[in-house]
Amino acid sequence: MTVTQPILGSTLPKRPSAIQRAWESFAIVFDSTVGTVGVAMVAFWISVALISLVWTPYPANATDFIQNESPTLTHPLGTDHLGRDSLSRLMVGTQVILVKTRLPDELFGYTLPFGDWPMPVGVAIWGVLGSLTLGSLLGLMAGYQGGWHDTIIMQILDALIAFPRIVLYLVVISAMGQGDLVVILAITITGAPGVARLVRSLAMDIKTRDYIRAAETRGESVWYIMFWEILPNARGPLLVDGMLRVGYAIFAIGTLGFLGIGLPPPDPDWGNMVNEARPFIFVTPWPVIWPSIAIASLVIGLNLFADGYREELTRYQK
């Protein structure tokens, strides 16, 4: 048999590497003004967190200074009611949220290695990763497998969703006590139902596509289809959702801190800083203002980021 039709496209460029592709798919966020602003805000706080790991103007818990001082040259953001440097506390406050997680010495009876060394990446991020993982698993099972899987999973998730979020936090924390890992767990549990609903609806849409039929007619296993055929195509919305959830998580951690049941000391906690300084608000508002702005700007930044990214994503899909 002779080749009768021409071979198409022999001069296509080479495929970019996986990292390049990942970056390219991320970089679309810079097409959106809103998204770019968001990225900048988030990047700012991450840099602050990283810098604070190696340098702060003063030790965060040192009480050596004049109390309730308004901003001066030596204390650019002023001091709080115990005479601690607000800037240093603000900087250190980013750490547990964004870049480190303090592990207990012992977990379920096992002594953890590495002694006092914290685990990299902050509580908010671990919590969101947790809910993304758990939620994706449940959502995929409910959405792709359908039937009684769907009924049971959704029923349980509905039950979880029915809890006002803060109440769930309160219950988890009153049940398990304070600690970085407990906060991670609480974020995971409160976030998973939402992720699962999202992934479920995505999976129900994606599973109608012909390429899923193709995989099924190849006799692929349910797990292969869920994790290799469906999940990769949900990554855009999942990234957006994850971003928003990091925002919620920081929001929630701040709130818990404000209520006095958030991340345990000794590291300063923004929510708690607001709470402690509140009674002195008539003396000086600064110690309340700074952490408030910090939380708001970080959460807003993440939201803008997610918004911009989503906008560009839908545009590129059109």
């Binding site: 080749v3 071979i7 198409l8 496209g9 296509l12 495929r15």
Partner: peptide, 11 residues
């Protein structure tokens, strides 16, 4: 090749 697409399509 059999479906008349060039080798470059592979990636």
């Amino acid at each position: 090749k059999a479906v008349r697409l060039g080798e470059n399509y592979i990636d």
